[in-house]
Simulated assay, not measured.
Amino acid sequence: MTSQTPDVRICFVGDSFVAGAGDPQHLGWAGRLAAHSHTKGQPLTSYNLGVRRDTSSDVLTRWHTECTPRLPAGCRAGVVLSFGVNDTTLEGGTLRTAPDVSAANLHILLTQARSTAWPVLVAGPPAVDDEKQNERTAVVDVLFAQVCAQHQVPYVSVLPALRAHPLWRRQVREGDGAHPDDEGYQALTALLLPAWQTWYTTVRSGSSHP
């Protein structure tokens, strides 16, 4: 690696949507964002740390331990977070995670991230093929946006656009009820790309602040 090419490392941490579940290309949106930057002459090392069924509580428990060995001192590091749909899933008629707990988990995580000096980008939870759950997720989406604003961390809300996106809804419906095919992930990537490009450019330049 030459001195002109910074050692940029990004951890994508979250749930099955981060992992790209349902995508036959095994890229999801995280892989597509990283690939886009690489093809534009801004190479990076990306780590996909998405885990199926993870809630915000699960991510809070593991994120720092998993990111630390992947983001060593000396590199230009960043963390992209996305979770929330599993929080709003009902099990036995009860929410897996209450909205106020989801928001508190994100607040704690962003507070921890500030102490690491790793800048963070947060992608909001997407839509599924269950409008009642989408309504519950919409509450979390608003809370997440508020928490990120308090921490001055960029937040991308994708739920409203995906709830109204015919291709996303069709692929989710024809799939497992939650995850799209590759075209759906391309649509989600397009929603995230503007914020990603701005954020990633600052991480790469070394001028970003958590």
Score class of each variant (00 low, 15 high):
L81S: 07
P119G: 03
Q152Y: 09
V203M: 02
Y47M: 09
R136T: 12
G93K: 06
S3F: 01
G41Y: 09
N134F: 07
P6N: 07
D182E: 15
S205A: 15
C75T: 15
A30C: 15
V51E: 08
T68I: 07
T68N: 05
E66I: 13
Y185Q: 12
F144H: 15
G92P: 00
A30P: 02
P160S: 12
S82G: 01
V51Y: 12
T116G: 01
A77Y: 00
L167V: 15
A73K: 10
L162H: 05
R76D: 08
D129H: 14
S37L: 11
S46H: 04
H209T: 05
E174C: 14
A127D: 08
T198Q: 15
A104T: 14
L49C: 01
T189K: 10
G206P: 05
A73I: 01
P125L: 13
G20Y: 03
T198H: 03
G177I: 12
S57C: 14
M1Q: 01
A104M: 11
L167E: 01
L81I: 03
L159W: 07
P210Q: 04
I10C: 14
R32M: 04
H151R: 03
R32H: 14
T116H: 03
A21Y: 03
W29H: 12
G74Q: 11
G124S: 10
P160Y: 08
T2K: 04
S208T: 05
P69T: 08
G78M: 02
A113M: 02
V203T: 09
S56V: 06
L110E: 00
A190D: 06
V85A: 15
S82C: 13
G184K: 05
N105Q: 10
K40T: 12
Y155V: 13
R9W: 03
T97D: 00
H209L: 04
E91L: 13
T202L: 02
R169D: 07
A103T: 11
Q4V: 13
V128I: 10
Q197G: 09
C148A: 07
A103H: 09
L33E: 06
S82T: 15
L60T: 08
N86V: 12
L44E: 05
T45G: 11
Y47P: 09
A178V: 15
T97A: 10
D130C: 03
L90F: 11
R163Q: 15
L49A: 12
G41Q: 09
Q25V: 04
T201H: 00
E174V: 08
E66L: 15
V85S: 13
T97H: 12
V203G: 04
S157I: 09
V156I: 09
P154Q: 08
T5Y: 01
A190T: 12
Q146I: 06
